[in-house]
């Protein structure tokens, strides 16, 4: 995005026109700006304030306690475990989605019969809601997979993997990728279609093999899309809620409790309102930092 381009003044602008233009522009901006300030920024400010109190969300009286909530959070094993779960999960999710997304986009970019039907089919999961997909897979993993696993003699599939503390996370990951890979695949596909075909012809005339072509032609063209996908997937992984709520609800024994789930239960069922807000703010800062780093890295790549 270029912000630097200077707008050219139109030659026949007199003072009156400029003034009415300014008023129109102000009126066009105000409604959106007011809504955003009242229902987006104001709650955030409220949150920052409540995060420094000991309010439980119900009583009328509460005290201002400064940063005490934050100090407690960093010694809270439950929070740290949830955060660690999210970071680990986030890395696995990003690797799976980027790798599978590029692979599927390459396949869907081939010129074979019925390719438009394949493309339409592969996008279907993206139009469904995460909670529907989660609830369906919850039942399938519970009722359908164990009999298959037993019949085939595959041990880790013979019981419900969502109730196994070690395997539950992979169940969640599978469901998340099943649905979450559709949109990135579409974006990667659009990126692939923007590559001029004669580049590949020239490269293969020069004797570059398929891998070299992928590395030196395909990947550089995918960098802008890759940035968008990475930022969105990392944010999704750090904020995952729907799938876990539907699949394990944090279980078994809390091993799949994500930060969002922890915040939700702290705030709405454990009456630790201000504490939950402080947790949310810490997660917010972490997400903002990671996104900022990702965007600055990709901007550097674009300049090169």
């Amino acid at each position: 995005m270029s912000v630097a381009t200077k707008s050219r003044e139109t030659p026949v602008q007199n003072r009156g026109a400029t003034r009415s233009k300014r008023i129109t522009f102000a009126l066009m901006t105000l409604p959106g700006l007011l809504l955003y300030s009242a229902f987006f920024i104001f709650p955030v400010l409220m949150g920052i304030y409540y995060g420094m109190t000991d309010w439980n969300g119900i009583t009328r009286k509460f005290n201002f306690i400064g940063l005490a909530n934050y100090a407690r959070i960093f010694q809270d094993d439950r929070f740290l475990r949830a955060l660690l779960f999210n970071l680990r999960y986030c890395i696995m999710l990003t690797v799976c989605i980027v790798a599978l997304g590029i692979a599927l986009a390459l396949l869907l970019n081939s010129k074979i019969k019925g390719i438009t039907a394949y493309r339409a089919m592969y996008f279907v999961p993206a139009v469904l809601s995460g909670i529907t997909v989660g609830l369906i897979f919850n039942q399938i993993l519970y009722r359908a997979i164990p009999p298959i696993g037993q019949a085939l003699g595959i041990e880790f599939l013979s019981k419900n993997i969502l109730s196994d503390p070690k395997l539950a996370v992979y169940g969640i990951l599978f469901v998340n990728v099943w649905q979450g890979v559709a949109m990135p695949t579409l974006l990667f596909l659009a990126g692939l279609q923007s590559i001029p075909a004669d580049l590949y012809e020239a490269a293969s005339l020069d004797g570059a093999n398929i891998l070299q072509q992928f590395w030196y032609i395909t990947l550089p063209f995918l960098v802008p899309v890759l940035t968008v996908v990475m930022v969105l997937t990392v944010k999704g992984g750090l904020m995952i809620f729907d799938y876990i709520k539907a699949l394990t609800d944090g279980g078994p024994g809390g091993v799949t409790e994500s930060v969002s789930l922890l915040i939700y239960s702290n705030a709405f069922s454990e009456n630790k309102y201000s504490y939950a807000i402080a947790e949310a703010i810490i997660v917010g800062i972490i997400i903002a930092l990671i996104s900022a780093v990702q965007i600055s890295i990709s901007n550097k790549k674009k300049v090169d």
């Binding site: 409220m46 807000i277 949310a280 997660v283």
Partner: peptide, 29 residues
């Protein structure tokens, strides 16, 4: 935006929210 500082500030103010995850404003909301 190119000629007015106010609109530049408004623009960056409106983009601020990209970095704020939903959880931060969920409960106050």
């Amino acid at each position: 935006m190119d000629t007015s500082r106010i609109y530049r500030i408004v623009y960056y103010f409106l983009l601020l929210g990209i970095f704020i995850p939903f959880e931060v404003k969920m409960m106050p909301l």
